[in-house]
């Protein structure tokens, strides 16, 4: 049977302080994705190989890795694409590596939390007044941004994230816009304070790769650009009409 070589970055902190590449030969199967090949290694070749995965269908967002230097979900990336190999597999770029292909997500989750990606309302309607209604057009405004699965591929595609670890990053802004554009939400002001501050949206120089690698077509680059425009409009408003701002 045909076989293909996977060069997998290993990081074993208790043995070596630096990561190193280890080669594995796996049988090639047309229907296999990269994750299937990794599972083959784990089951049949080397049980110590460590990586995250769960749903195998591009929804959970946990199997993101660098394959030939490009961030992808390994569950929807076919081996066949990279023939004849070898295929280089590394943990997602710019994140601290805990072990082999597993990265530390604390920093990312902290940034997402800072963007307050939940509905913020000025006053809650009593239940007797019924539900918060939304037209299909109002839904369309934010639906694209709601598709984000927190897979972190956009962070690994963004050199600004690597250069400036404090930069809030693509997904966090897309998730903020998910709620800013929601007709039921009043949290814009609170999110502004965080996202227009140091290391916020204006650190982005529109490399644009975040939107290219996004497996869910969320377009974080567009979200950031639109936020920059909103931020600029509000800045000028606060200068021209200072009495109207600061809410």
């Amino acid at each position: 049977m045909e076989s293909v070589t996977l060069q997998v970055l290993r990081y074993l902190p208790e043995e070596k302080s630096e990561p190193f590449y280890q080669d594995y030969d796996v049988p090639f199967q047309k229907k296999w994705v990269i994750l299937d090949a990794l599972n083959y290694i784990k089951d049949h070749v080397d049980g110590t190989l460590t990586y995250r995965w769960s749903c195998r269908m591009g929804v959970c967002g946990s199997c993101g890795m660098m394959v030939n230097d490009q961030p992808v979900l390994t569950c929807e990336t076919f081996l066949e694409t990279y023939l004849p190999g070898p295929i280089r597999i590394a943990p997602l770029s710019y994140f601290a590596v805990i072990r082999d292909l597993v990265v530390n997500t604390d920093d990312f989750l902290g940034k997402v939390k800072r963007a307050k990606p939940w509905l913020i309302t000025d006053e809650l309607k009593p239940v007797t007044e019924g539900e918060y209604r939304q037209t299909p057009d109002e839904l369309k405004e934010y639906k694209q941004y709601s598709m984000c699965i927190n897979c972190m591929l956009c962070y690994s595609a963004c050199p600004i994230v690597g250069l400036d670890p404090e930069f809030v990053g693509p997904a966090a802004v897309a998730l903020a816009q998910r709620y800013n554009y929601d007709s039921r939400d009043d949290g814009h002001g609170q999110r502004n304070k965080i996202l227009m501050d140091d290391d916020g949206i204006y650190s982005c120089t529109l490399v644009g790769e975040c939107s290219v690698v996004c497996p869910k077509a969320v377009d974080p680059a567009g979200a950031i650009q639109r936020y920059k425009v909103t931020g600029a409009v509000e800045w000028w408003k606060s200068v021209v009409m200072p009495w109207k701002s600061d809410k």
Partner: peptide
């Protein structure tokens, strides 16, 4: 208390 590897750009 694992040691983490932080690649440099």
């Amino acid at each position: 208390r694992p040691k983490r590897y932080q690649p440099r750009m």
